[in-house]
Design a protein around this nucleic acid. Structure first.
Lengths: 302, 302
DNA sequence: CGTGATGGTGCAATTTTTGCAGCGGTGGGA
DNA sequence: TCCCACCGCTGCAAAAATTGCACCATCACG
């Protein structure tokens, strides 16, 4: 899209904070880039960037402009995909920002299903915490986001919320494996492996024990849910995860997962959303629709 | 705005239906224009226009694109006005499509008030019937619209509706001038001057008499409300108008206006609105706000 | 008190855009 | 039926714009 060149250049500068660096990544000279910026500032009658000794920073006007530019670029993508849609095949690119729990099973499966029907659509899955995910929506690095619990809802438009009770994961031979649901105090009587503080599950557990006389004393901590499962398997201890991150029961012969009693630990809430007010490209909109259907089929949604 | 040139060119072609004609109005050669179109079609991979023997017409893809182009252009205007707003003075241009009744008093007064505060803002007032007004919103010839009664609400976002009871206009010496409200049958016992079928007031009256045994027998018809008032004055007959089109009582020594009884003729409804989903430029948004305030102060609004 | 990074500028090379002249095609009116 | 006016499109040369190179001034940092 020829007419967006200047806008893309400016976006790159805003992103990197330096004309020369941006020029590097854009594979042009800083001269050309600098001149495009000056030309745009001339057009607007106002500087877009503040010149600092170590680079540039968006001015107030630049902030307004950059938001407009990002919308323009993404809108043009949407229009192109809508037009491509007219001639049959759906094309496009979908970027999703999500937390780790979605990566191992749910998303790959859903993407496979979607790509089965529309193989010209490409995907980009970005691991982001809640804050980074929302920023990705704002700068349109991502079309959709799937994050846990507290989002600064300012720019986040919730498409669906999914209740995810915390599950206890263990081998089939663990003493607790026979129960239907588990109380927190019973679990903490056994050695446990926990995710690090950065994760929502850990937060929920911390909040829960704070209301009791219990103590979380993990024998292993990790920021990888996969590692925690292997640890639980090999050492026959407990770990905690949410259902969406777990394999389907059939694909998981040696282990079981049981829900924690909700009186002890409230369920985590998974938020599925997009940038407020944005019209998604066709492909992303349809994929979002597919996700919503699968969510409501398989989980407890609101 | 340099980077919008191609888009503006294409918009002009879509509007005029001919490359050569559009080139004429754009003061460039048809060659240059043609080549820009071909380049854009190359970019999109799809023709924007169908080539007909007597010109061009938008293809399906072109329809999608042209909508995008119009929003892009108007968005850029909005951004520019937002940026100008940062540095104090409000600039911008406001285009309003409205029916005749607004032209003589209400709009000039409101525009004068607004321009008193923001003299760098320019206005454009377009006389349009309900259908043309909505089309003007869609192709962004107009930012705001003020129209009567039935709108194909598809793309019309109502900001406010104003009840406008039909008034009877006459000289101070007319036999009916003493009443507080008037019944339709009393009015029709006297000679009347009416607007033509094209106007909402006439519609309301026609609909009213259809439910009775009365007959509308205008001695004068006109499509000019101003003419009708002068006619009523010089010949001492009745005419019908809505309050927003009438001068303030003080500025109007020889005539009076009395509401028709609403049991006979339902009030007309004035719709104030914009294009659905569009974010207006600052200037237009603030002017819309001013209008809403005046409307609610002076008339019966919903 | 250098040193290395930053943004900005003059000038020439290069690329892109434009205008002119002309082609082939189509449809309405004499 | 035959023009003729109008349409979109193209080759080529002129004009305009963008770009790259070399270089400058500035400022933070060691």
């Amino acid at each position: 899209m020829k007419h967006l060149t200047s806008l893309r250049y400016i976006e790159a500068v805003a992103r990197s904070g330096s004309i020369r660096q941006a020029a590097e990544t854009l594979a042009i000279t800083s001269t050309a880039l600098n001149r495009r910026i000056l030309a745009m500032e001339e057009d607007l009658g106002v500087p877009i960037f503040e010149r600092l000794p170590r680079g540039v920073r968006l001015s107030a006007a630049g902030e307004i402009l950059i938001h407009h530019i990002r919308t323009q670029i993404s809108d043009m993508e949407r229009v192109k995909s809508q037009i491509a849609d007219l001639s049959g095949e759906r094309r496009g690119h979908i970027a999703i920002a999500c937390s780790q729990a979605l990566l191992p099973h749910f998303l790959p499966e859903q993407i496979a299903v979607y790509r089965g029907a529309h193989s010209a659509v490409t995907f980009e899955v970005l691991l982001r915490d809640r804050d980074a995910a929302e920023r990705a929506l704002v700068d349109m690095t991502a079309d959709l986001a799937l994050v846990f619990e507290p989002v600064r809802m300012a720019e986040f438009e919730v498409l669906l919320t999914v209740r995810q009770p915390v599950h206890v994961v263990m081998t089939r031979h663990h003493p607790l494996a026979g129960h239907r649901t588990l109380r927190l105090r019973d679990c903490l009587a056994h050695p446990v492996a926990l995710p690090t503080e950065a994760y929502g599950v850990r937060h929920l557990l911390e909040a829960a024990v704070r209301r009791t006389s219990l103590n979380l004393r993990p024998v292993v901590e990790s920021d990888s849910f996969e590692f925690l499962r292997f640890q639980a398997l090999s050492e026959d201890i407990l770990t905690f995860q949410i259902p969406i991150g777990l394999p389907e029961p059939g694909q998981w012969p040696h282990m079981v997962s049981l829900p924690l009693d909700e009186r002890d630990v409230p369920p985590g809430i998974l938020y599925f959303g997009q940038l407020k007010g944005r019209t998604l490209p066709v492909a992303a909109a349809r994929f979002a629709q597919q996700l919503q259907e699968r969510f409501t089929e398989r989980f407890d949604c609101v």
